[in-house]
Design a protein around this nucleic acid. Structure first.
Length: 177
DNA sequence: ACGATGATGAAC
DNA sequence: TTCATCATCGTA
């Protein structure tokens, strides 16, 4: 049972400009919103800065990762494995490449949303959203509905699928409830 | 365990 | 212009 404590507020640039790991942890318990539905975020991964070897931004700015170098609060959606879209929200200040990958949502009666490609498939999120601001006008945004997450509820682990990243592969940049 | 399936970035 | 690589999923 989810209880609501305060008025909803749409998360904007100010929230996403905070340090990457802080934003990643605080996104747990927030809601990914479309005009029709709202889903609580339950799993994320942080990709933090130009030195993060697991990040797309590690090799510098390219055509694909350009949104990561832009202002915070913008969607970064990319295609992998020939069939899956990944949804990230850009964080950190402009020219500091960082993003948080949304990996899981609280499942609805209609679908399990416990993987980064499952949620994008279910919500029909593809590269049309890449580079767009996370605001209601663009039909995809994030809200704080007042759900309180205790620190003890947040677990962490190394990120998934980044074994090539050396020391960076060991960092506990994955957070989940 | 592995195949599906295509964009990406770097080498040649 | 080719090639290895890839922040995965579903079926086995």
């Amino acid at each position: 049972m989810i209880t609501y404590h305060k008025k909803m507020s749409i998360l904007g640039k100010k929230f996403f400009e905070q340090p990457t790991l802080k934003v990643a942890k605080e996104l747990l318990g927030k809601f990914l919103c479309t005009p029709k539905e709202k889903f609580m975020i339950t799993e994320v991964e942080a990709y933090d800065g130009p030195k993060d070897k697991a990040s797309h931004a590690y090799k510098g700015k390219t055509a694909r990762n350009t949104p990561m170098f832009g202002p915070a609060g913008v969607w970064y959606v990319y295609f992998v494995y020939g069939m899956h879209n990944m949804l990230n929200i850009v964080v950190g200040s402009k020219n500091y490449p960082a993003a948080v990958l949304l990996r899981g949502l609280l499942s609805s009666p209609r679908a399990k949303l416990d993987g980064p490609a499952k949620l994008t498939k279910f919500l029909k999120i593809d590269r049309k959203f890449n580079g767009k601001k996370a605001v209601p006008k663009n039909n995809l945004w994030i809200e704080d509905l007042g759900v309180k997450i205790k620190k003890s509820q947040i677990k962490s682990s190394p990120r998934i699928g980044v074994q090539y990243a050396g020391e960076w592969a060991k960092k506990h940049y994955r957070f989940y409830l």
